[in-house]
Simulated scan of single mutants.
Amino acid sequence: MNQAIVVGLDGSAQSEAAARWAAREARRSGRALRMVHVVDEDSVAPGPPGAPGARLPEAVAGIRDRIAAALPDLEITCERITGSPSYALAAAGERAGLLVLGSRGLGGVAGVLVGSVGLRTAGHARCPVVLVPDGADGTVGEVVLGVQGDRPCDAPLAFAFEQAARRGTVLWAVEAWTPPAGPYATEAPLEPPAIKESLAADRLVHLQDALSRWREKFPEVRTRAEVVGRGAAEAVLSASGSASLVVLGRRAPRHPMSPPRLGAVAHAVLHHAACPVAVVPHD
């Protein structure tokens, strides 16, 4: 059987939204759901196994119970573990291949998991991390893939196509492109706007080529490709208005202890998108 999808819980509304998203994804993919509540090891008082300090907080247990009642056929486990939260969550997700977290914190202790820790986890985890805002209702819309660079990477493309296939929805690949500053050296007397249009058309052909191999693997997925002349974060956020999921790539850390790094585009999208955002590491 496939490994369980891991979702981090802290009892907040954001983590409950993440648990509901993860539960739907588990059911779509035929996987179990593993709920994890992480307690910072420095804050845990020593005590015998089974002592009250080892119990799940009431808010976390309540989320578990509501998900189990809504999806009685879904295999669910829920456990409390100790450790440095971002590294414990990343490790749990890496073993399973997918980690889901709430995307906004509440401030103070209750909001640490889904706020700063959530961002740090997405910045160094070696598996895809989906961050889900409170209010994400599971509506089926496009899967938006933000494409950057001359060589779109396989890991984000594969994840986006798989998600679109499971949802039976359109994959919308968006590439932000800024034309190079003039002057332009050409043999024909073209005006700069015409040159820019020609260069943009070339970028679109390049993007379509990058999608073509994945269209062959997922023939049921309808695709849309667009090259837009605006900033990358603005382009993705504009496309995400009706999306059910945004997928972004992130270069994987070279060393397990490398500092977390999301990049400016992912950071901006995570703070402003109204739908879940998947951050997918790649080489």
Rank of each mutant, 00 (worst) to 15 (best):
A176R: 07
Q208I: 02
A13H: 09
P57C: 02
V144T: 02
R224H: 14
G53Q: 10
P128M: 04
A194G: 13
P48I: 14
E226L: 14
E226C: 14
A91I: 11
G146R: 05
G123M: 03
S84E: 10
I195Y: 07
E187D: 07
S116C: 05
M35R: 07
A32Q: 06
H271C: 04
K196A: 08
F218H: 15
E216V: 15
A155D: 10
R224C: 08
G118S: 10
I195C: 09
H272Q: 09
H124P: 05
E58T: 12
P49S: 02
R27A: 13
V44S: 06
R126F: 10
L145C: 00
S240R: 07
T169L: 12
R27K: 13
E234P: 00
A51Q: 11
L9Q: 01
R215D: 11
W177E: 03
V280A: 07
L9S: 00
P183N: 09
P179A: 07
S84C: 05
P85S: 11
L99D: 10
P180L: 13
R80S: 06
G241R: 15
H206P: 01
F218Q: 14
V7M: 10
G135C: 15
R213Y: 09
G115T: 07
V143R: 02
T82D: 04
S86W: 10
L248E: 01
V117Q: 09
Y184R: 05
D283F: 03
A233W: 03
R213K: 12
P133N: 01
P133V: 03
C78S: 12
D134Y: 04
R120Y: 06
E226Q: 15
R230L: 13
A266Q: 07
L98W: 09
A233K: 02
G149V: 02
A176D: 09
A232V: 08
H206C: 08
A160H: 12
S43G: 00
D154T: 12
A264Q: 04
V246R: 11
Q208N: 10
A239D: 02
E162P: 02
C127G: 04
A164S: 05
G168M: 14
L74D: 07
P152S: 08
